[in-house]
Simulated assay, not measured.
Amino acid sequence: MKIAVLIARILLGLVFVVFGLNFFFHFIPMTGQPPMPPKAQAFSGGLFGSGYFFQYMKVIEIVGGLFLLINRYTALFVLVLFPISLNIFLFHTLLAPAGMPIGLAVVILNLFLGIAYFKYYKSIFTATPTL
């Protein structure tokens, strides 16, 4: 189990660091990609059009991915990155199906790590917390 968690953590960390950095430095060529459907373009256009959101999200991806790679605050960053992973999956499932395999892989890795680190989340699910 430890080996599987290590592999999943490194893979997820690499995905977020590489694709987050690619947003800023464009080192992965995007030629040959199928064109995005109109709804996917509208959604992406809204995120870009806000002037800050996409950049903010990519910084969170890079920082979260780095913390996964160095294995610090891992349980926290698994939670922080889950909404982004879910959004990647839903975007590629509903709006741009050509990228669905990467979206599925990201959400599966994130869910697997969430289950692996569940012992750190148990206190969050306390119905009536006491001080």
Rank of each mutant, 00 (worst) to 15 (best):
L90T: 10
P97Q: 08
I108C: 13
L66P: 01
F53V: 04
R72V: 10
G103Y: 02
F91I: 04
L79F: 08
I62W: 11
L6A: 13
V106E: 12
T31W: 07
Q55V: 08
P37C: 06
F91Y: 15
P37Q: 14
S85Y: 05
V78D: 02
N87F: 13
S123C: 07
F25I: 05
G64K: 01
T130K: 12
T128I: 11
F91E: 03
Q41F: 03
G32N: 07
Y121N: 04
F118I: 07
N22R: 04
A127V: 14
F24M: 02
F25G: 00
K58E: 10
F25N: 02
V80W: 09
Y121G: 01
G32Q: 06
L95N: 07
S85V: 08
L66Y: 05
L47I: 11
Y56P: 00
Y73V: 03
T31E: 15
S85P: 01
F16Q: 01
L69K: 05
M30D: 12
V18K: 04
L90N: 02
P35T: 09
M100K: 13
F67A: 02
G64R: 01
L131S: 13
A127E: 06
L95Q: 06
A8E: 02
V106W: 11
T31H: 09
L11Q: 05
N110K: 08
F112Y: 15
F27W: 10
I108M: 15
A105N: 04
V107F: 14
L81Q: 03
L111T: 14
G99K: 03
L131R: 09
N110C: 15
V5Q: 09
N87Q: 10
M36N: 11
L86N: 03
P29Y: 09
G45R: 01
L94M: 13
L104M: 14
I3Y: 15
N22K: 05
T128H: 10
Y56E: 09
F82P: 00
A105P: 04
G49K: 02
L68E: 03
Q55R: 05
P35F: 09
M100W: 14
P35D: 12
F91G: 01
K122H: 12
Q33A: 13
F19T: 06
Y117I: 08
I115Q: 10
